[in-house]
Design a protein around this nucleic acid. Structure first.
Lengths: 110, 110
DNA sequence: ACAAATATATAACATTGTTATATATATGCA
DNA sequence: TGCATATATATAACAATGTTATATATTTGT
C-alpha cells in the first residue's frame, strides 16, 4: 500500500486523468479502476472521493448524468472542456513535481 | 513553483534525506538547500519546517545541538540511528509511490 | 543609519484526507 | 429462502499537515 500522506494532493489528478481516458465513469467504478491500475496499492476511500467529485462539479470541471440501473441510481461523471485542460495541467504539474523531487532526493554523491 | 498540495507528505522525507547527506544542518540552512537543489521550485516555509523538526526530534529521529554564532543561537539537527533507517524507508516509499502513480497516470493508449 | 539577510518559533486558519455511519439494491451460494 | 458479499452514493466527526501572519533578535552590506 502507498502511504496515504503521499497520495494527498494527487486525488484530483487521478480522477481527472481517469475521466479523460475513459469518458464517463461513476464513483464506484473509479475506485475499482484505481485499485486495478495500481495493482491494489492505491485504494481510494469514498469519504475522499465523493467530496472531490462534488467539488470538481461545483468548479465546472465535470458534469453528471444520473441513470437507473434496475432500481439503483448510478451517477456518471464526465469532463467538461475546462476539466479536460485542467486534467492536462494537473498531469504536467505532477510530472514536474516528480522530476524536481527526484532530483532533490537523488542518491547522494559521497 | 511546485504545487504545495503535492509537496504535502514529502516534507519529512526531504528533511531526513538532507540530513542523511549533509550530516548536521540547521533550519535556515535546510530551506536554502532545498531551494538550491530544486532551482527555486520548492520553498519550505518555516511554519511547516519547524513543527516537523520538533516532531522528528520528539520521535527520536533527530537530535539537536545548540551553538552560538556570535551572539546568535543556532540549532543543529542530526540523524539518530532510527532517523537514518527512517530516511531510507521514506525514500523507498517515495520512489514506490512515484512508480505506482506514474503507471496510473501514464499516457492513455487509445 | 537603514535595509536586507540571517535565524528560530508559535498561533490562527485552511485544506484535504480517514474513519465511522447511514441507506439501499443486486448477486451468489448453501 | 436466507444470508453474506458486492454494488452504489453520501455525509459527519475527526486528524494531519501545511500556509499565512506574527513575534523577536542579530548580522551584514551600503
Amino acid at each position: 500500500m502507498i502511504s496515504n500522506d503521499l497520495l494527498k494532493g494527487t486525488l484530483r489528478t487521478i480522477v481527472l486523468k481517469l475521466l479523460a481516458d475513459n469518458g464517463r465513469m461513476y464513483g464506484y467504478e473509479i475506485t475499482k479502476k484505481v485499485e486495478e491500475l495500481s495493482t491494489g496499492k492505491i485504494r481510494l476511500t469514498f469519504g475522499a472521493l465523493y467530496p472531490v467529485l462534488h467539488k470538481l462539479e461545483a468548479d465546472g470541471h465535470i458534469t453528471t448524468e444520473t441513470e437507473y440501473i434496475g432500481r439503483r441510481v448510478r451517477k456518471y461523471y464526465s469532463l467538461t472542456e475546462v476539466g479536460r485542460s485542467g486534467a492536462q495541467q494537473k498531469l504536467d504539474e505532477f510530472f514536474d513535481f516528480v522530476n524536481t523531487l527526484t532530483y532533490v532526493l537523488k542518491p547522494s554523491p559521497a
